[in-house]
Design a binder for these strands. Structure first.
Lengths: 142, 142
DNA sequence: CCCATTACTTATCATTTGATAACAAAACTA
DNA sequence: TAGTTTTGTTATCAAATGATAAGTAATGGG
């Protein structure tokens, strides 16, 4: 197996993933939040409950800036903070009711476009895709 | 095949791809250029020669902003512009010698990290990965 | 109890990025 | 050739983002 060729394939693959992701997610976010805020909400949606430190680490945003953006999201009533009862320095962040509604709508929109994209795939294609996602998830993008 | 489940798998997959891509590419770019400028150079590297319009479309940057960033890259001697002889409105953008050196170094660094990541994969694993990349590239991220 | 560490906040500033209006030059079109 | 479209530029402004310094409060280890 030529690892150099595999690298090149990986480069164009990730480029395609980014491009398609952009296509499926463009204009799904409300105008009332910024792109970075949307990313934070998306991360919370998938991983909640999370701490500000988690967000800082995983979204690669400094703690001061994370704190600022969370404050803004809080002021917009999209998230809720709960202090850990064990360690009162820690905060657990969750989507608020409004936040959940906003993200449900956004993800439904993305899902619609996704289903549209695979509408012409045969049963076998879908199974191939499913297997391929598993393979890459476990062996490359772990 | 449950398409809803496939969508969820797709969401976590793309999240992983973005995360791993970030890991492999972090700190590879010179401090003398901004993230957006790096993306433009990367796009030029893969697709050259390209026109400003191509960059604007594919990188989702407005023409005025594309023009501004290209001007900055030009001032840093990282790219060269050549006017089309047939249609003199068009410009073809290429990496300059310096630009090529910069991107070669950056990509070599990314490749090093990539090889590191797959160093423990068996021959069969690599073949699985290779096939999976092909499947997804043709059937999902086309 | 004291000191170091952790988790998070506040304030401030510079830079980057995005958006818009107005323009110029070349090419196409009727 | 006059008007329109395409391709790209310049200028300007506001907003988003990133970086840093300084601070608070809770925890944990001697």
């Amino acid at each position: 197996m030529d690892k150099k060729a595999l690298f090149n394939k990986w480069v164009s693959f990730t480029t395609s993933v980014h491009q398609v992701t952009h296509e499926l997610t463009q204009n799904v976010k409300s105008d009332s939040i910024t792109p970075v805020q949307y990313n934070i909400l998306e991360y919370i949606t998938v991983s909640q409950p999370v701490t500000p430190s988690d967000i800082s680490n995983c979204q690669h945003i400094s703690m001061p800036n994370t704190s600022r953006e969370l404050k803004k999201l809080s002021e917009k009533n999209l998230i809720e903070k709960v202090t850990d009862t064990e360690d009162r320095r820690k905060q657990y962040i969750r989507l608020s009711k409004d936040g959940k509604i906003m993200m449900d709508e956004a993800l439904a929109f993305v899902e619609f476009r996704f289903l549209n994209r695979i509408q012409n795939a045969s049963k076998e294609d879908l199974e191939d895709i499913d297997r391929a996602l598993d393979v890459l998830q476990t062996k490359l993008f772990y």
